[in-house]
Design a protein around this nucleic acid. Structure first.
Lengths: 349, 349
DNA sequence: CTGAAAGCGCTTACAG
DNA sequence: CTGAAAGCGCTTACAG
């Protein structure tokens, strides 16, 4: 019944016939130590199932070895982002704790500040939008002040350029260009909540893309919506003028797009004949809607990995990692008409 | 540039004119201490922003104060389960780390065993299916051996009764009964992966419900599928015999159900006229499908809270908490015909 | 009701 | 290349 105390480095030392310091050197690979001794120590440690007491190590090194990732409950794909972030953090020797924070942006910002003040974490990565003044990732250089670094997955830098892979909205331009090439002249955007950098980025690229094609007769019927909800999309469809069709609607995500499709049906319009619709995220159901939904597939796990790499760079005082390839890919389906053809036509252009 | 060391309990003691022991007593509320002293100590602690060093505390108390929650990447709703679990753990004074584990059930089981052996956690809650022999939650009593307790959100007990709120499939019977009352005589089930307790429970309740109505001429065309995927649902629809309609299809979740709806359309059948379809989870898009999807709404956050309460009960050596009310609610929509009416007819019966 | 002292299990200069 | 010793910041019997 009595559980024996777990073995300590002292036990390993005694059994290996060395000092505790030598055990520490063998395990951390830090000091100078002969290969023979190291081998023997590791052998003994493994044989008795020795596991270093992390609390003791943490106290001595004055490092917690802990990072926090802040999630919300609004966007389900954050689970995959979290997974990618955790994977990279673990590989770097950090433990990750998650904190779910909802409520107003002010409340979320306060909570993140509290986490930073708790001294419990060496760094914080937030997947939910918080006030920019709570972030320490603003400068392009890796400079540090004394506080706990706080990095957001998606945000904007000083020049208001979107930062973070999920805020990369360049695929919107691909959508607009292809649909314009396919003949659409009227567009509309159903945006997500403006507090999300990703939503703002999609809106901005939408506006810029349509503007760029103004010379070709392309116009925008406006930016509608403002929530990550299907109902927001449905209402947006109902808000379109009666003579809107043919019109292409760029929705902020797949859920919003599903609502648009429903609203389009309720108005007696057809998709994609009267209204072409695009989503974002490539949720699995989208491929099985009727019409199946053109969307932007996102590698959320990779987004999480990259975000964590950014936080680690700040922790190490290194410059922000140079961006890798895109994690977005447009998936053409029936809701934009021509499906695969439309995409191929554009891609080969 | 030089960051001052954070204040320690020693600093608080000096400033408050008491000993370090008194500070500890004041903060933990453990020893005998006068209200006046305690008040003064807390005041001083707050004024200098004192935060106990958790690593030091942990080393001394020989408790890590850490729990692990194991998630996967297959089911997005685990983010909400995680949130509920984290909320309860935090309120109980525990820190929660998450580990994302995918792969085969054998691999997942091994990894959970490693986590349990790491001595890093006081308890482990897994949201992904693992081998029953990795769990310590099997007995109804709170008995403990020396190892780290491992509790699964959803599993089966010795009598093969489903345990854990997400494995509560009683709503399936409500679906079958209502659809039978609405006139359906032929049923089919598109199941989820058998390694999931929730999928097995839905299948079992489906089979039992149909069997129970055999006297009324109700028959099952079989159990199809076996994945949490829309494609699995689509293929199941194509596997139905040509003369299946009218038939009611109980799908394992909304994603599968969306695939069924797509497959039904591809076969030239109508829903719900020829094929009634039900899902599970109440994903937001479901309400905006055409036809909108009858489903079972699940309070995932509450499921997470309850699962964590079960783990805490094991940790405290208490008996398993008595089950609270259901966290499931059938939502009748167009995909079962009559929509709200069908539900109301049954509910008032 | 309060304080002096020991010790949790590590790591790290430092001495040899 | 290895060891003796100190100390990280707490908590907890124990003495008063």
């Amino acid at each position: 019944m009595a559980v024996p105390n777990p073995p300590t480095s002292r036990d390993v030392a005694r059994l290996a016939g060395v000092s505790q310091a030598t055990v520490s050197y063998a395990l951390t690979g830090r000091g100078t130590i002969s290969a023979t001794t190291r081998e023997r120590v590791l052998q003994v440690a493994a044989s008795i199932g020795y596991r270093p007491n992390l609390a003791a190590r943490s106290m001595r090194t004055r490092r917690t070895g802990q990072l926090a990732v802040v999630t919300g409950t609004v966007l389900d794909h954050q689970l995959r982002v979290l997974t990618g972030a955790g994977e990279v953090a673990e590989a770097a020797g950090y433990a990750v704790r998650t904190h779910s924070i909802d409520g107003t942006v002010e409340h979320r910002t306060d909570r993140v500040r509290e986490l930073a003040a708790s001294r419990q974490y060496e760094g914080i990565l937030t997947l939910v939008p918080v006030g920019a003044d709570a972030l320490t990732d603003r400068a392009a250089t890796g400079e540090r002040d004394g506080g706990t670094p706080v990095v957001a997955e998606a945000t904007f830098d000083e020049q208001m350029r979107s930062l973070g892979d999920l805020a990369d909205a360049t695929a919107v331009r691909e959508l607009v260009d292809a649909l314009a090439a396919a003949g659409f002249r009227r567009f509309a955007h159903v945006a997500g909540p403006a507090q999300y950098a990703s939503a703002r980025a999609r809106r901005d690229v939408y506006l810029a893309s349509v503007e760029r094609l103004a010379g070709a007769g392309v116009t925008s019927l406006g930016v509608l919506g403002g929530e990550w909800s299907a109902e927001s999309g449905r209402l947006a469809a109902h808000a379109l003028p009666d003579d809107a069709p043919p019109v292409a609607v760029i929705a902020a995500n797949d859920t919003v797009a599903a609502g648009v499709l429903r609203g389009v049906g309720e108005r007696g319009w057809t998709a994609p004949g009267d209204v072409a619709v695009t989503g974002w995220d490539d949720v699995e159901i989208g491929a099985h809607l009727t019409p199946s939904l053109t969307t932007v597939a996102v590698d959320f796990t990779e987004a999480g990995r990259r975000a964590m790499h950014r936080l680690l760079a700040v922790l190490r005082g290194e410059p922000r990692p140079t961006t890798d390839g895109p994690i977005h890919r447009v998936v053409w389906r029936e809701s934009t008409g021509g499906g695969r053809d439309a995409g191929q036509r554009v891609r080969s252009a």
